[in-house]
Nucleic acid binder design. Structure first.
Lengths: 331, 331
DNA sequence: AACAATAATTTTAACGTGTGCATTTCATTA
DNA sequence: TAATGAAATGCACACGTTAAAATTATTGTT
């Protein structure tokens, strides 16, 4: 392996000069720098990041931590997240991926090993981890899940507004009896989406019927169960908003099972716009949560945090967008 | 940060002794080792991997490289792969994730930065990258895509056998007129699956009708188009094998569009068992490709390669399994 | 008790890089 | 031309670790 000393020897300068030249120090004359850069390129020099890390105390590593890598639902998440991140991350940063549940020893999570950490959070069970990271003083951005703590940089989708927009649309299509299948109890996203649902109903002066608030937990199965309950009501809703697409798929299957046709007999709306939302039958009308955008913005914030540690944490909202497909009919 | 020298001072020994004690060297007396380990634990010592790397020339990093992180199809892939890998990878190894298309400078891919590399390959466009890694002498395992080169460790699913089994099943249900929507031309997986399809037909002495070999490219859209063609035949097939689930979903939608009911009028089989295969309507009968198992086995092979560099490369096959759901009817 | 043999530990150096301080080079000014 | 100061470069050390070689402690043998 070529080192800066090898280059120094060839260039007839000290390794210090090589180091400075290659790192863009202003102390080096242009001709010297050019010569050194040329030689380095010719010799295919690649810096030794271990040595660099040792002396600069930076690891050149960003850790991406996932709620649960063993849980099924998050599949498209991960790709989108990595896509967004590597889009803005400098190529000589390493992106390491971990499931939070795979971290058995918090002691391994140290400033010395991670320049910064991104948490793609889906559950408040992540909080223990998040606070460990914060306590260790590692630059941190939490993505996807809204936190109560204003001391942590947080990038999330504007769920409430997104849902309101979706329900507004359903109402504009003539729907008056709207139901919601709620997300997992206790999750911020569940209450946010419910709020958006209610915002719209209230704005349109529609009744809030408690029968139309069905419990769910974000799983496909819970969507199926909740929909079954809703269908058994004497006065069925004409449109059902599902707090995520998984539950919408469950709900859809419940309708099939009960020979209820979508959207003729009942309309359906989802949230997330997972990859398969457009391939369900009929294609699901849903609210797109821009995971790649969230990750990209989060990464930018993290980079800023690395460069200016004094940057104030803030909560950033990324706009969702309504994706109109075929599960909402006029009424 | 605590270093071995700090521990050494407290323990009243030299830092070398600490290093040896903590690394399980047989040169250290048990009482000394115990004392040092106790102190290290009390002081929350965490080794500095940069320093370790610098001197041992190991990076403690495994790179996972994906065909294309920007292409949509691979979503569940990634999670399953990471799941399988982190399942067997020692916790103080770092797993970094990259899209091959994101690597603009092959020079960055060096033994010094990666102890080993896993390539989750989906296309022969990866070959340039793969051979670069091989040339650099980095321990390498290629997953998921069958290579022709016997000099590279390769772990794949036994597609051919898996497909044969699936077609055998369809035949056992009484189907005689079977069609295939083929995968992307030139891909090993396409020909393997096609072979499995033909193996079964030949074994059952069924005619190979050239009309029943429809071209596809693994995309949902191509599945739709191919199925449309098949449906327009004067003598339609009674069962269609799609070379992957994505195309099966496209095919399904084509059937919906033409008011052909599945499985009553036509049966459908897929390949991969992507997450949503069980939530299509009706649920898709398909061949499960065990990505997590492939990744896990591949990682084990890589670890062995790290420990015994002389291990001979081999091609390992992981068995697929037929997942019977609702898209194949008796005939 | 003396010595050898072996066990346990320390000393010293090295890995490749960045940085404070000392030194050299060079242009400018008196 | 000499003095001055700024610009450019070099020297020496540090970072935390492992490893080869050197030293010291312990045990066994006679």
């Amino acid at each position: 392996m070529i080192t800066i000393k090898d280059i120094a020897r060839v260039a007839g300068v000290s390794h210090t000069t090589v180091s400075r030249a290659l790192n863009g120090s202003p102390l080096i004359k242009k001709v010297t720098r050019d010569k050194i850069e040329k030689i380095a390129a010719e010799m295919n020099y690649v810096p030794n990041y271990s040595a660099k890390s040792l002396v600069t105390k930076r690891s050149f590593t960003i850790g991406l931590f996932f709620s649960s890598i063993d849980q099924g639902t998050s599949s498209s998440f991960l790709v989108d997240a990595i896509k967004g991140i590597s889009h803005v991350l400098d190529e000589n940063f390493n992106l390491t991926v971990h499931g939070i549940d795979g971290v058995h020893n918090f002691g391994n999570i140290q400033p010395q090993r991670f320049d910064g950490i991104l948490v793609m959070s889906q559950s408040d069970e992540d909080n223990a981890f998040i606070y460990h990271v914060k306590t260790m003083g590692i630059p941190l951005v939490v993505l996807n899940r809204q936190l109560e703590d204003p001391g942590i940089m947080n990038v999330v989708a504007n769920d409430r507004e997104g849902v309101k927009e979706a329900i507004d649309y359903a109402v504009s299509q003539g729907h008056q009896r709207l139901a919601i299948i709620e997300g997992k109890p206790g999750f911020k996203s569940s209450t946010e989406r419910k709020q958006g649902f209610m915002d719209s109903l209230i704005e349109h002066r529609l009744q809030l019927n408690s029968d139309y608030f069905a419990a769910g937990d974000y799983s496909i199965e819970s969507g199926y169960a909740a929909m079954t309950t809703l269908l058994s009501l004497s006065e069925r809703p004409t449109a059902v908003f599902c707090s995520n697409d998984d539950m919408a798929i469950g709900a859809m299957n419940a309708c099939y099972a009960h020979k209820i046709s979508i959207p003729q007999q009942i309309s359906l709306l989802g949230f997330d716009d997972i990859m398969f939302a457009r391939y369900t039958n009929p294609a699901l009308t849903t609210v797109r949560k821009p995971i790649a955008d969230i990750s990209e913005l989060g990464t930018k914030m993290l980079i800023q945090l690395l460069q200016q540690p004094e940057t104030k944490p803030q909560q950033l909202f990324v706009k969702t967008s309504l994706v109109v497909r075929d599960t909402v009919a006029g009424c």
